[in-house]
């Protein structure tokens, strides 16, 4: 059996690699701030009207941003942070409806409406085209002898009138 003199180093390196895989990479301050901005843009300011926590100057929003910041520093993901706020305030706190349950309906109803409208329009146009293709009669085929006589009489009267 071959004895490796550097075996302890290999083991140590492997252990370090395994340990580091379990650790969240440390974020720079710029990265933390960028995440805080992104996440707080998804949260509704509870004391304002139509403003996100990111855009609000209210003290409460500033505290919520601080909370988001400390959660980001703890290594929590955007989903985990939004889920925390939702568990405390309800779905109201999220600025975008969730893509599940009734929220799913809000996301897909406009798309479904547009698709349905497009289909209806398509079938309507196709039907009209078919009908006009079937009818396409020449004038003579559709006019009765009485009607032709009447048209000729009217034209004559018109010319005389000129």
């Amino acid at each position: 059996m071959i004895r490796l003199p550097y075996k302890p180093f290999v083991v140590l390196t492997l252990l370090l690699v395994l340990w580091s895989r379990g650790q969240a990479p440390a974020l720079s301050e710029e990265e933390v701030e960028a995440r805080v901005q992104t996440i707080s843009a998804e949260l509704r300011c509870p004391t304002c009207q139509a403003l996100s926590v990111k855009d609000s100057e209210a003290l409460f929003s500033a505290q919520m941003r601080d909370k988001v910041r400390s959660m980001v520093r703890e290594g929590q993901s955007q989903e985990e942070i939004l889920a925390y706020f939702e568990s405390r305030y309800g779905e109201f706190i999220l600025r975008s409806p969730k893509k599940q349950g009734v929220g799913l309906l809000v996301w897909w109803l406009p798309v479904g409406g547009l698709a349905l409208g497009g289909l209806l329009l398509f079938f309507r146009l196709a039907k009209n085209q078919k009908r006009s293709g079937e009818a396409a009669p020449s004038g003579e085929e559709t006019l009765t002898p009485e009607q032709i006589k009447r048209i000729e009489r009217d034209l004559k009267r018109y010319e005389e009138g000129l």
Partner: peptide, 12 residues
């Protein structure tokens, strides 16, 4: 940071 108020979902 208003930790307790946020944990209770306080609006104001």
């Amino acid at each position: 940071e208003g930790d307790i108020a946020i944990s209770y979902g306080v609006y104001g």
